[in-house]
Simulated assay, not measured.
Amino acid sequence: MNSQTLSSLIDKAITDALAHRTLRIESSRLESTGIENIQAETQRQPTTFVMITGDDVAAFPATLRYLAALAQAGCLLSVHFSHSAQRLHTRFADTLHRLLPQVPCQQTIDPMLRSGDTLLLPALSDNSLAKIALGLRDNAASQWVFQALAQDVRIIALHHPDAAMPSAYLAQLSRYQETLRQFGIRMMGQPAAPQASVSHSAVACVGKSLLTARDVRLHSEDTLRVQPGTLITPAARDEIAARRITLITAS
C-alpha cells in the first residue's frame, strides 16, 4: 500500500473516530449533573485502541503521522503491535515514543475494552483479514476483534489489497471483506474484487484528457493507451506502476 493511498484512508478513519468520540463525550456530559460527575466522566473518556498488523515498512510512517494527529485532536490512544508487526515496533519505537509519548507500547496487553471505546486497525493485513473472516482467533488482531465484537465495541478496519494479485485471490479477499461488514465491522478502503466491466478498455481511455486512479483500476488490459497531453494523476501513476501496466501515448 502506498503512503498516498494510506493517507486518504486514514483521513476518513480519523474523521469517523473523532466524530464518534465527540458524540460519546457530549452524551455523557448531558447525562451527568454537577462538576463531580463531569470530572468522573472525563476520567472514563473512551479510548481508541490501535492494533498494528503486517510489516509494511514503507507505509508505516504515514500511519504514525495520523496517529499523532488523532492524539493531538484529543483522542486517548493505546497502540499495540501484532506478532507480524514486531519489526515495525522495533524499527520505529523511538519515533513512536516521540510522537505519542503517552501511548503504552507493550507488545502484549489485554485491553479492557468497554462500550464507547473504538478498536482501530489502520492497515489490516490480508492474513488477519482472512483469520477474522474465518473465525480463527490465533493471532492478536483476530483475538482483539472478537473481544470487541463480544463487548459491542466499535471497530474500524482499513484494508487495501495489492491490485497486482491474481483476480481469484482478490475475489476471495472481497468475500472476506463482506464477511467482516456482516460482523458489524466498519470496513474502509478499496474493494478487493476487480471490476467486472471490461468495456473500459484501452480504446476507452484514449480520448480522456484526465486519467485518474479509478480509470486505471477499471482498466483490464496489460497496456494502456492515452492521447498526447493527457494529464495523469500521481495516484493513477502509482496504480499503473503497481499493476505493471505498459503506458503508451497514442499518435
Rank of each mutant, 00 (worst) to 15 (best):
P104L: 03
T95R: 07
L149T: 10
P101D: 03
R44C: 07
V57H: 12
M187G: 07
S209G: 05
S32A: 15
Q107G: 11
Q151R: 13
I245K: 05
Q227A: 14
R154V: 04
Q195I: 15
A164I: 08
Q106L: 10
L120V: 01
R29N: 08
V50P: 04
H159C: 11
A213N: 05
R243C: 00
S220T: 14
A157F: 01
S209V: 08
A58H: 12
D110S: 10
E31P: 01
L88C: 04
I132R: 06
R65D: 13
L218R: 09
I245Y: 08
T63L: 08
W144F: 12
A71D: 15
L224R: 06
R24Y: 11
L70K: 02
S7E: 12
D55S: 11
Y169S: 09
L64A: 04
M165R: 15
Q107M: 07
S7R: 09
L211T: 07
H160F: 07
T118V: 15
V103I: 04
A196K: 12
Q177T: 08
H80W: 01
T22L: 15
C105F: 08
L70P: 01
A141R: 00
L124P: 07
S251D: 15
L113Q: 02
A73F: 05
I248R: 11
T48C: 14
V57T: 09
T233P: 07
H97G: 02
A168F: 08
D162W: 08
S115V: 15
A58I: 14
A163M: 12
S78H: 14
L76C: 06
P194M: 04
L9I: 06
R137P: 01
A213Q: 10
I52Y: 05
L120I: 05
R24S: 13
T63C: 09
R237G: 00
D152K: 13
P104Y: 03
S128L: 07
D16L: 15
S174G: 15
A204S: 14
A168S: 13
L210K: 05
T233W: 05
E41Q: 12
I185F: 02
H83M: 02
M1V: 08
R225C: 13
N2A: 03
A58L: 12
I156P: 03
G229M: 04
I38E: 13
F81N: 01
L120Q: 02
A141K: 00
T15I: 14
S28E: 14
L173G: 01
M112T: 11
L247K: 06
V57E: 12
A157T: 03
G74N: 10
A73Q: 14
G116F: 06
G207K: 13
R243Q: 12
G207S: 11
E36V: 10
S82M: 03
P104V: 02
A235N: 09
A250G: 01
L136A: 09
S8I: 08
I52D: 07
H200R: 11
G229H: 11
T5V: 07
A123E: 05
M188D: 10
S197M: 09
K131I: 03
A40M: 11
P234N: 05
A202Y: 02
D16F: 08
Q143P: 00
I156H: 06
L121W: 04
F146L: 00
I35G: 00
A213S: 14
I109L: 12
H89I: 00
Q72P: 04
L170C: 04
A19G: 11
D110R: 13
T233N: 05
S220K: 13
L23H: 13
G207F: 09
N139C: 15
T212W: 00
T33L: 13
A73W: 09
T179F: 01
A62S: 15
